[in-house]
Design a protein around this nucleic acid. Structure first.
Lengths: 339, 339
DNA sequence: CTGAAAGCGCTTACAG
DNA sequence: CTGAAAGCGCTTACAG
C-alpha cells in the first residue's frame, strides 16, 4: 500500500498508452484529440486513487522545477518576512514553491547559496544582492535564468528590478519636517554602500540643501549590535544639542534611536521629531506613535512576482529589462509635529 | 557553452566509467577501492569545470530530495520568521534546503499544502498544525516521512514534538505578578483551541487558584484585526476597574493591549503591570520596556532540526517518538513592579 | 577497479 | 487516438 502509483501503473490498469495518460494529466487531451470519454475515465481513476504525478521525474524531463528562490538579506527582518508572506500566496497560486535563504549581506555566503541552488535547477531568482556578487548573478542571467533584484540593485547587472523610490521617501520626509519648522535635521543611516541606502541619503541631502540647512549624518556601523547602536545614538544626540528632528534610514535604526531619545530624556515630538524608513507594526502601537515612510509590501510583492512570472512564462523576452519603482507612502503619526 | 556538463561527459572525457565518476563524487572512492590517483584526477577535473551534479536526477534515483518543509502558521510572524532564520543555518550546513509555507491556521489550506509538497517528495516536515489535519499528518507518518510538530501539537498524532513549557511560562509569570502584590490579574488570550494556548491558560489558572485569587480571562476572537482588538481591549479594561496586571498570551496581543492601556490613560507599571508571552525586539525598546516570557528561539530551532535530522539520517527509528520541552525564560523589565 | 545495464517516473517526437 | 522508444542525468547491483 505504501508503493506510490506511477503513470505506468495507471496506463496498465486502464489499458491505455502511457503517453495518453501523460497528455490527459497535462491538459493536452483536446490538443491531442483524445476523446472526452477516455479523458473522463482517466481523470476519474486518478481522482479515486489520489494519484499525484512525481514532480521529480517531471522536472528531470522538462527541465523545469516550478521552484523559485527568495534570497534576502535576512528572512527574519520585518520587511523581508512580510514580503515572503505575500510572495508565498502568489507563488502557490501559480504552482510555484519557494525556497528561501539569507545572504546576511555576505558576498561569499551569497556565492555559495547561488551555487547550491543552481544545482537544484531552480527556475527563477528573487534576490536582494550584496555588492560583490555581480559575476555570479551575471552568470545566472547569461544561462537564461530569470533574476529579479529587489530592494537594492547592482548598477552593472542588467536585469529586472523592483524597488522603492527611496530618494522620494527621504526627500519628502525631510521637507515635511522642515515644514514643521525643524531646523537641525539629522539622518541616521548605515555605513553601507547598498544602493537603497545611497538613494535615501541623496534624498535627504537634496531636501536639506534645497532649504539651505546644514546636513547632519550619523553612519551606524553595519556590524553593530543593538546595544552598541543605542549607546552611539545617545552619544550622537548629546554631541548635537539643538537637534530637533531625525530621519532613520531603516526601521531597526529607528527602534534603537527611539530608545536613545528616551534615555536622553527627550520628548517626541516636543524636543525632537522622528520619521522612520520602513513601517513596522509597533510604530502604530508605540507611544507616541511613530511616523514612517512605508513601503507598500503587498504591492511590492505583486510587482516582484509578476515581473518574475512574465519571464518564467515567456510573456516577456529574457533580454528585456523591467524596472519597477514603487512610490513610498509617508504616514504621519504622533512622533512628528503637525504642520 | 550553455550546455551543462553531465557525469557522462566527464566519464568520456577522462576515459573512465560513469559509475566510477559517480562513486568518486559521492565520496565512495575508498569504499569502492578506487585508486587515489584516479580519484584525484576526477576531482580536479570536476573542480576546474565547475561541474555540479544534477540534483534532480540524483533525487529521482535515490528518492531523496534533501529538501525539508517548514510549514508555520504565518511566516511573517516574529516568532516564526526567527525560527526560519535559525533553521536555515542548520539546514544548509547539513545540505538541506527549506521550502516554507503558511497554514494561516486553516485546515483546508494546510491539506492542500501537504498534498502539493508530497508530490515534490520532500524528505521531512516541520509543522505547526492547525486542528483538523490529523488524518493528513498521520498519512505522512504512515508513509514513513519524518514529521516534527512544533509550537503546538495534536494529541492524536503520535510523532515528534518540540515546544515550550507553556504552562510553566504563564504559571511563573502569574506568581511573579502576585509577588509584586497584584491582586486582579487578567489573562488576555485567543479564543483558540490550540494546545499551546490551552497550556498557557492552564498555567495562569493554576497559579491564580493556588493563591486564592479570582481568574479573569479575556478571549480575543482569532479573526480580529488589530484595531478591533485594541477597541475590545480598551472596553475590557474599562469594564474591570482595579485591574492591576495583565498577562498577554501572545506578543501581538500584548502590542494591542499596550496600546489600549495607553489609550485608557493608565500607566505601566504604576496602574497596571504587564507581561507578554513571546519576546519581541521592540519590548526592549518600548518605554517602559515590556517584561516577557521568552521562547529561546535559537535553542528551539536547534532541537527542531536535530530531532528531524535524527530521523532523516536514521539515527533514530521512525517509530520512536521524541518530545522536547523547552524551558521559557521570564525576562523582567520596566512594565512590571519590582518584587 | 571497470563497464554494461537496469531503473527512477516522467515527456515527447514519431510512425501508424 | 495508440504504442514503442528515446531521453532527462543520475545510482547501484552485477559480472568480470
Amino acid at each position: 500500500m505504501n508503493k506510490k502509483l506511477s503513470i505506468n501503473d495507471i496506463a496498465k490498469e486502464l489499458n491505455v498508452a502511457k503517453s495518453t495518460v501523460s497528455f490527459i494529466l497535462n491538459g493536452k487531451a483536446k490538443e491531442k484529440r483524445i476523446s472526452d470519454e477516455l479523458t473522463e475515465k482517466v481523470l476519474k481513476f486518478v481522482q479515486e486513487k489520489g494519484f499525484q504525478l512525481n514532480y521529480l521525474a517531471k522536472s528531470l524531463s522538462t527541465g523545469k522545477t516550478k521552484m523559485i528562490c527568495l534570497m534576502v538579506e535576512k528572512i527574519s527582518d520585518y520587511f523581508f518576512s512580510h514580503i515572503a508572506f505575500h510572495l508565498e500566496a502568489l507563488a502557490y497560486k501559480n504552482g510555484y514553491k519557494i525556497i528561501y535563504c539569507s545572504t546576511e549581506n555576505d558576498p561569499e555566503k551569497t556565492r555559495q547559496l547561488i551555487t547550491l541552488l543552481r544545482a537544484r535547477h531552480i527556475d527563477g531568482y528573487i534576490i536582494t544582492p550584496p555588492k560583490g556578487v555581480e559575476p555570479e548573478i551575471n552568470a545566472l542571467i547569461s544561462d537564461n535564468l530569470p533574476v529579479v533584484l529587489f530592494d537594492r540593485y547592482l548598477p552593472t547587472v542588467p536585469t529586472d528590478y523592483v524597488g522603492l523610490d527611496n530618494y522620494k521617501g527621504t526627500f519628502d520626509a525631510a521637507e515635511l519636517l522642515i515644514k514643521t519648522s525643524a531646523k537641525k535635521i539629522a539622518l541616521f543611516t548605515l555605513s553601507s554602500v547598498q544602493s537603497q541606502m545611497e538613494e535615501r541619503q541623496a534624498g535627504y541631502l537634496d531636501a536639506i540643501k534645497k532649504h539651505n540647512l546644514k546636513p547632519l549624518i550619523f553612519k551606524v556601523p553595519f556590524e553593530n549590535d543593538t546595544d552598541t547602536t543605542i549607546k552611539q545614538s545617545i552619544q550622537f544626540i548629546s554631541d548635537h544639542p539643538g537637534l530637533d528632528a531625525i530621519i532613520f534610514a531603516t526601521n531597526y535604526l529607528a527602534l534603537s534611536g527611539i530608545k536613545a531619545i528616551n534615555e536622553s530624556g527627550l520628548n517626541m515630538p516636543g524636543d525632537i521629531s522622528v520619521i522612520a524608513f520602513d513601517d513596522h507594526d509597533v510604530f502604530n502601537i508605540y507611544n507616541p506613535s511613530i511616523s514612517a515612510i512605508a513601503q507598500p509590501l503587498d504591492e511590492m510583492a505583486k510587482q516582484l512576482f509578476k515581473t518574475l512570472l512574465d519571464k518564467l512564462e515567456n510573456k516577456v523576452r529574457l533580454k528585456d529589462v523591467t524596472k519597477v519603482i514603487i512610490q513610498p507612502e509617508l504616514i504621519l503619526r504622533g512622533s512628528t509635529k503637525q504642520v
